[in-house]
């Protein structure tokens, strides 16, 4: 079966590493710690779904989501926001995220959410 593409953006390298480790068997994963590079990556790689941390330096997750929603080509993209901040859910949904998962998350729960939003039926 053709793997869907998942782009993960989080400034914390450990989280990127463990998510790649967890999801690489399920998705084609692209990991990026620098939020400023994400828009270019999205245009070139056209992922099926994006996982974005909210609290990042230079360009915060909610700013990134807003950019996606404003972009003609990318605005339909599925976006899941993740954050350790308790006000994250409100911030994320207001910015235009499709879903929010609080840190620390349960890997299974996160996986289920990604699958369901990317339109992938659970095997």
């Amino acid at each position: 079966m053709h793997k869907k593409t998942l782009l993960i953006c989080d400034d914390d390298q450990d989280i990127l590493d463990v998510l790649e480790l967890a999801f690489k068997s399920h998705f084609h994963t692209i990991c990026e710690a620098d939020s400023l590079k994400v828009m270019d990556l999205l245009r070139t790689n056209r992922p099926d779904i994006v996982l974005v941390d909210l609290w990042m330096p230079f360009l915060s997750g909610d700013q990134l989501i807003r950019s996606i929603r404003r972009d003609e080509d990318l605005k339909e993209l599925r976006v899941i926001a993740i954050s350790a901040s308790q006000t994250g859910k409100k911030v994320a949904l207001t910015a235009g995220a499709d879903s929010f998962i609080a840190k620390p998350f349960d890997l299974d729960e996160l996986l289920m959410e990604i699958r369901s939003l990317s339109g992938e039926t659970v095997a």
């Binding site: 914390d12 450990d14 989280i15 590493d17 463990v18 998510l19 480790l21 967890a22 350790a84 840190k103 620390p104 998350f105 349960d106 890997l107 299974d108």
Partner: peptide
């Protein structure tokens, strides 16, 4: 919570 997040994920893996 940030290190806890990766720790938890590693443990689950």
């Amino acid at each position: 919570k940030t290190p806890l997040t990766s720790t938890l994920a590693y443990i689950q893996l």
